[in-house]
């Protein structure tokens, strides 16, 4: 009788422990996905690329959470991928967009041309990794930014720091994108969405290959083709350019030095 009681008691403890664990906000269950997704379908942020939208949890970028983008090189369309989403977010909200530690200058006329309000953009230039983390956390805490684009020092970046950023992003209701180099894909990350961007093979150059390394409510998806730029190699154009180049080199005195 006594034995039976302890057994039942133990089970009860186990079950209550499990219940508590399941209530933890970092844990999601496959069965919850449908209802949460149904709720978030209204609220998530469309990426502007229909093919990508269909693959993402809640049909778009998370409005509060951490996204990682791993571009192969600079200039493979890593910003272009975010522009439609940022644009939409700026239209919906009055909050700002911050760029922490950008590698180059975000060019204001180009942002303007993409309908991004540069008056609500600010850049943070931290002097070291510690300052960058501090600034990121404070910006998220303040709740005054709806989106953040962050470049961190990969060598000093630790998983627990990302976890902290992810939690703060939920609290501050901000969509934060961290750009990491390609080799970071082997490291584990608490981000709810991880994408890698690769340039396509030589013959389809105006497309990028986007791979989903990690997403909520689904398996990774490799090699999704996206057209981010509209620069086609026009044969006539190339010829003109080549001629121009030649002419320039022949006629300019400085060009002769090359």
């Amino acid at each position: 009788m006594y034995l039976k009681y302890t057994y039942v008691h133990k089970i009860r403890i186990l079950v209550s422990g499990l219940q508590a664990l399941l209530k933890h906000k970092d844990i999601w269950r496959a069965e919850d996905i449908a209802e949460i997704a149904a709720y978030q379908r209204r609220t998530n942020l469309p990426t502007g690329f229909t093919a990508l939208d269909h693959l993402l949890y809640g049909n778009g970028w998370p409005r509060d959470g951490l996204v990682e983008i791993l571009p192969e090189v600079h200039g493979c369309g890593e910003l272009q991928l975010l522009i439609p989403g940022l644009c939409r977010l700026m239209g919906e909200e009055t909050r700002w967009i911050s760029w922490v530690n950008p590698p180059f200058v975000p060019y204001a006329p180009a942002l303007n041309a993409h309908d991004i309000d540069v008056n609500r953009v600010f850049l943070v230039h931290p002097k070291n990794h510690r300052e960058a983390l501090w600034a990121t956390e404070k910006i998220l805490e303040s709740g005054s930014c709806s989106a953040m684009l962050v470049w961190l020092d990969e060598q000093q970046l630790e998983e627990k720091q990302l976890r902290r950023i992810q939690t703060r992003a939920k609290e501050g209701r901000a969509w934060i994108t961290i750009f990491r180099p390609m080799h970071a894909q082997v490291k584990s990350s608490p981000a709810e969405l991880r994408l890698s961007l690769r340039l396509a093979e030589a013959h389809i150059k105006d497309q990028v290959k986007l791979s989903i390394l990690k997403r909520k409510g689904g398996w990774p998806v490799p090699n999704l083709s996206l057209q981010l730029h509209e620069y086609r190699v026009l044969s006539a154009n190339t010829r003109i350019a080549a001629q121009w180049q030649q002419w320039r080199q022949q006629h300019s005195p400085a060009g002769a030095k090359h």
Binding site: P106, A108, P109, L111, N112, V118, N119, V121, F122, L123, V124, H125, P126, K127, E131, W134, A135, K138
Partner: peptide, 12 residues
Amino acid sequence: RLGSDSWELLCS
């Protein structure tokens, strides 16, 4: 905390 040169706004 980071100094006045730690942030900037864009102006076109």
